[in-house]
Design a protein around this nucleic acid. Sequence first.
DNA 1: ATTAGGG
DNA 2: CCCTAAT
Length: 648
Amino acid sequence: METVVGIEDNDDGKFEDSGVDRSSSALSSPKQIANPIVYKLVRVEGDGRLVPATDDEVMEVGDFLEYENSEMHVVANTGQSLECISIERSSSGKLRLECKEGTAEADLGELNAKLQILQKVKEEKQRISCGSPAHSHVNIDSQCSADKFPVIDGKVQSETPCQEIPSIASSLNYTHSNQSGSIDQCSRPSEGVIESGSSASAVYSNLKPDLSMSDGEICLDKLSIRELHELFKVTFGRETTVKDKQWLKRRIAMSLTNSCDVSATTFIIKNNKIVRKFEEESSGNMNAGSLISSGNMTEEEDVNFKDSSAVNACGIEDNQVVSETRPEIGLEDENYQTGQRAAKRIRRPTKRYIEELSENESREHNPRLSISNKPMGLGHVSPTLNVRPARNAFSEVRTYGTRLDSLGGSDVQIPCVSRVRRSRPRKDIASLMKFHPTSMGEAEKLSNKLLEHSSDAGSEFPDKVLKSRMPSKFHQPSSSEPVKEQCPVIGPVELRQELRPKRADPSSHTSDDNNIVTVPTAKGGMRRKHHRAWTLVEVIKLVEGVSRCGAGRWSEIKRLSFASYSYRTSVDLKDKWRNLLKASFALTPAPADEGINLRKHGTAPIPEKILLRVRELAEMNSQVPPNYSSSQLASGGGSVHGDRSGYL
DNA sequence: ATTAGGG
DNA sequence: CCCTAAT
């Protein structure tokens, strides 16, 4: 609840932030982990009836959300972490704003001016929607809860206070699932968040009337594209590059009116509603219509959503819990297994492996050739020569492969690209808003049909359907690894397919497998072959995960922090962590100030902070006595317990 | 099924 | 990242 409008995105960028309270928690982007909001799609029939969204639709939204996220990530990544860091000490509230600005590189003054305009708008909206003056002083509350969920049953309402203003909006029904975690979050933010809230409001406070608004009426139509951009920015807290005015207006309008029922042509917002040329909807109706009671949701859906939120919730509470958890672990058994722990597991080389190394390669040339003693010609023939037609029987397919998307813990195969980056907003956003009346039935049928046909190859549908039945975790789409074509190794190139095949066609293997190039192995296994560089965000998540669960509990971490990154397996996490450790200990032990050891040019600079954090965690983990050789942490703190606050 | 380690 | 051993 305390989250302030429009600021949410920042969270991503400012992992380093940390101010008072949040900081302790994580370095990860609170947003993802923390965002407890779950969106539910509902269609509002003409008569105001609510029709639960189909799974398909839900997924669409999920994707959409992801899109939002990824876009933000991008920003976060590009943004200067340095700036944020430097600001770190200021109050969290301040920090947020500043960070944001740094990222946006906007002129403060100008921005403020724009903000004010927007603020005006928002205020209006707020005023109208919440009605009760009483709420107004606590701007956050009024804004989020009152504003958004005027109606809705108690359950939802009680939960809602935690939310941020969703950028996506109106057609979505926000359900806040109540897992301990999220609740925790809600109640907790006492300090930092509120603080940030207030500061944010401060910014808004000195507003002046604006052109686009008169008598509580906002006419988006009058705004220039640039203004729309600003408005968008303020409304959603992020920048947009979309040039499409219609789209912008629609988005903004939706947000402002909290309704999905945005006319495609008119964007005059009055009293929190879109005013249509002809029919002016009665406000009462509107409200009833746009708000969907959670009661309408089906069980299945509910499960899914809860599930996902649960994950999120976990992510959030970590910080607080960490201190508790850690000790637990330590005490239980690790503590006195410490000795054992020290000794690394030893594995003796296996004959088989060794043999195969040579055998393998040679086989490429000549399958018959059993063992070539000469390393000479090896390794040249591209694996591609040896291609195998698709097979269904991967008796032991590894579980990586296609990405499981986990909106609501469901697994859906989605082209990875979509998460990576999508330059353009889904064009069919419209379809999101106005579903076809029969959508549900159709979708269902369609999927079923698909199910029958393609039992094996990667069509999206089966999974979608399945998902509704298997609510959560990981069921690995067993059949999902569509065998790759001759895979002329495409290398790390990011296939940038803008579009994600909207309607997967059942037979096409191509649609969705894109990024994951797989290479047939001599043994019939498939080997994944696409190098995905680790993003900063991922790294942060990882570190955060480790801090929460402890190193070694990769699957846990994977479940908690990487639920949405299907391509990162627990093993990947482990490997990455290993690398991070290496990196972190490689850092100059000397007092950090020497900037010398920093980044080599090409290499992605992992913020020193993170590395420090890694190191800290590492030590913590191993419970190494303080006086260990390299143990003296540069920046003060190696204490095992207390001071994680310093970092991140 | 997960983890640790080597390559 | 991939692969295998060990648990």
